[in-house]
Amino acid sequence: MTVAVEFSSVSRHFGAVRAVDGVSLQIAEGAFFAMLGPSGSGKTTCLRLISGFEKPTAGVIRIFGEDVSDVPPNRRNVNTVFQDYALFPHMNVADNVAYGLMVKGVGRAERLRRAEEMLAVVKLDEYGGRKPGQLSGGQRQRVALARALVNEPRVLLLDEPLGALDLKLREAMQDELKALQQRLGITFVFVTHDQHEALSMADSLAVFNEGKIAQIGTPEEVYARPATRFVADFVGSSNVLPPDMTQRIGGPAAWSSLRPEALRLAPAEGAALAGPVTALRYLGAGTRVQISTGSTEVAAFVPAGQPLPLPGQNVGFAFDAADLHVMDRA
């Protein structure tokens, strides 16, 4: 496996704020890698460290084995799709896409031909003559994508690429980005605060919390076996159970997590988890039923079509022992 991007104990401090604090990670060549976390968790700073807009306070970043500590952004073979797209308003779409080739000295005819080819890849042929202001949000994002890809970067960085799009367009773009990445074989690194986006698009992801990596793994690993309470709660809003509770339902004295979809309704008598229903939230494909077990609120996902309890009614939750995930660190 070739390592495309490697962080070795990288930190970036802004005064007293530790935006990135001792992060080490490796991103394999050709991976679709997600950096997931709430705002202020350091994921965007990590992306900017790769592109070169931030310099590490400590640690070393390598891109394809080369230490890039002293390499300015314009000499890194890495391109970024910015969150606000950052298209140049005074240039038309074709010139925007050809910009990277222009500053590298490619002749006008040649660079416009390649820009046109790349616009065809993102399905925007015929739009070359327009100004960015005349395009919709989704089209602008495709232009930003084409403008980055035309340079044939070794790593493509995407900063909240779908954040500004509406739901329908976002889902369509998720599939398209994934297909494009598989076709081109370029390493994609994208930053998102949306766990669904990270789980569905990435083949590997890092969950950030307060400047540190809470967990790295495949989406399945992170979802099914969260390493910390934070990951369990942030990815898939799992039920996080304290040690005494874990012990009461038959586990060791440690923090554990239970996915809402692993729980099913059962009679209150004899159930491991039981209590009055405190909230019912309709989610379309099913309903989230929340009960109070005294110290902790626990939620189950009840698929549509099954009978639902009433608010205040005493119900129990049953589960398979295999679904109880005990966390090795809290």
């Binding site: 910015f82 950052a86 500053v103």
Partner: peptide
């Protein structure tokens, strides 16, 4: 002139001088 535009220019390989001539000054 948004900072992200100057960053985009550098990201696409432009030197400071090229960014000044092709992005900062026209804007």
């Amino acid at each position: 002139v948004p900072v992200s535009m100057l960053e985009a220019s550098a990201d696409l390989g432009a030197t400071r001088g090229q960014t000044f001539r092709t992005v900062t000054l026209p804007l």
